[in-house]
Amino acid sequence: MIVRKRLTVQNTIAVIVALIFLVVVLFSFSFIGRRPGAGEQFIRQGVEDTGAVNIVAAIYLNYRLFDTIFEILVFALAVIGVRFHLHAIKDKRPRLKEALFISESHIVRVAGDLLAPVVALIGLFLIVTGHLAPGGGFSGGALLGTVILLLAVARGGERVGRRLNEDVVDRLEQIFLVSIIALSALSPLFGRPFFANFFPLGEPGRLLSGGWILLYNLLIGGKVFIGIWVMMYCFIRHRGDV
């Protein structure tokens, strides 16, 4: 009873604090809309500097590549953490073959087979045209990861997991991560500072343009694809089924 009373008091205080926060912040935001000068420089010089039409991609992978590399490191760290901790809590229950009933729906399987190649193509398209149109390595890679989930739902997680050789996947992930970091460190060899593009810029609007943005999109796409799939496979295996 005392605990419940204390909880009620705590909840009331929480609601009051949140409402005060709401009022204070709402009234402190008085500016919105276009302010000249904020991103003008990137708009004016972005194409000239980087060769990429998509200015967001230009900032993400050229002007502020330093931030992006550490973001990829955080992502890699999360994948390692998920793998490590889900291995630590292995299921205690012994699993018998006859104990598992996988319900297989024909509709789900056919829809999975039909949709998977289409979604995979869209993912690849997003990765490849990241510097010309919205998209890029991360969204394309995550989309490719969900394709594997689609296949796992349609065909069963174990069957899809067996296809992907774990050693090869591990090695590929390491290669992607190392080459993402190493590529940025190669710049001084070409007489440029660290994290600066040393590829030819090309003609803006063409597929082969934008310096190393295309290459980085491919590497990040692969890394994110493998990372998302590895995390998902850990969750699936921990549950025992999709």
């Binding site: 991103g39 993400y60 994948v79 953490g81």
Partner: peptide, 25 residues
């Protein structure tokens, strides 16, 4: 203004990473 958008992309990815890890915890 493209700057907030490019900034926010990293935030979304880190959000995903952190929440997946805390889900495991």
């Amino acid at each position: 203004d493209p700057l907030p958008q490019a900034l926010v992309l990293s935030a979304i990815v880190i959000n995903l990473a952190i929440l997946a890890l805390s889900l495991v915890f």
